[in-house]
Design a binder for these strands. Structure first.
Lengths: 174, 174
DNA sequence: GTGTTTTTGTAGTGATCGCTATATAAACAG
DNA sequence: CTGTTTATATAGCGATCACTACAAAAACAC
């Protein structure tokens, strides 16, 4: 998970993954089936862990705008580079990847994430939940990409606060 | 330029680039020195052409907020996938690339782009030009990444308009 | 036309890619 | 301890990577 997150799916080889896990290629393929198989498990672990910032923000309760503010703030705190890892694994691990299986895995996770956001927003603003979810999806993609380009927590937090205010205004408009 | 833009720096090989240019490897290296050498020229062509949306928006004149609105709107129109190409070459061509030379080239272009934004904003709001430029940098990174993930012009335009309004408010605050 | 320089095509460099055939070592059942 | 099964290591599969040595061809000077 750490290697995929730090350098992206294509840039990390099976040999290196095996070395990190302390196993040789045959054991690797017996355990995971393929490189994409290990990536799928890494993705699941990531999504079910503390990196699922929306799930964490949702667990603390509050109305839609509050939860969204919390989600954006968590992204700003989590995304800056630490130990060579930056941004979101789901959003960025398969950028420019040539592997269709790996890309399909992240694409599915992105769809699920966007749908979770949309469904939650729809509890208060069903008519514009889709557009608001799109706004957040694009904003978080920007935070993850910027973090990978070296943006620090201060810059991401400032963006998160501005984006949160914009979200609230769009939500309350009309 | 088209191949690098569509699939990213690492995913396109010298053989394919040579085939597209109608030349064989020795001629390729005589002309460009290296794969990164051709990428540098592709980047320059991109930056000096109509893909430099800030330069285009700036050329049409107007105050800062107007030019920024125009820049975001141009990104929303330019970034969606057409002929397999989506997003911004500078922002996304070296994502997850393992080549330090190619990454240094895009990093320099990103710094130059951010500085151009900052300097222009500083003509009206010197005190907060850096923070406002960071906001736009992150927003455009999000639009480019989302476009690469399949976002259409409608979603990007909605984001651009919301981001533009947020920019104007942050600019006029205090 | 001749001799020289530049450009090109053919072929191949070593390295790495994801992945696997084969053979040995370990674990286990009786 | 024997026989069978599971798991591992060694080695290498074909393919592709960026890049280049070498030689044939094209262009040029005179």
């Amino acid at each position: 998970m750490r290697l995929f997150h730090a350098r992206g799916y294509d840039a990390v080889g099976v040999a290196e993954l095996g070395a990190e896990l302390g196993i040789k290629p045959p054991s690797f393929y017996a355990a995971f089936g393929s490189k994409a198989g290990l990536f799928e498990r890494a993705l699941q672990r990531y999504i079910q862990g503390e990196a699922n910032i929306f799930a964490r923000a949702l667990a603390d309760g509050g109305d839609v705008a509050t939860v969204i503010d919390r989600t954006l703030a968590l992204a700003a705190r989590l995304y800056p580079r630490r130990d060579g890892v930056a941004g979101c694994l789901v959003l960025d691990a398969t950028r420019n990847s040539a592997d269709p299986d790996a890309c399909a895995l992240t694409a599915a996770a992105k769809r699920a994430s966007r749908e979770a956001l949309r469904a939650f927003i729809a509890t208060e603003r069903p008519a514009k939940a889709g557009a608001l979810a799109d706004f957040l999806t694009i904003a978080m993609a920007g935070m993850s990409a910027a973090a990978r380009d070296g943006a620090d927590e201060a810059a991401l937090t400032a963006f998160a606060e501005t984006a949160g205010r914009a979200f609230r205004r769009e939500m309350e408009a009309d």
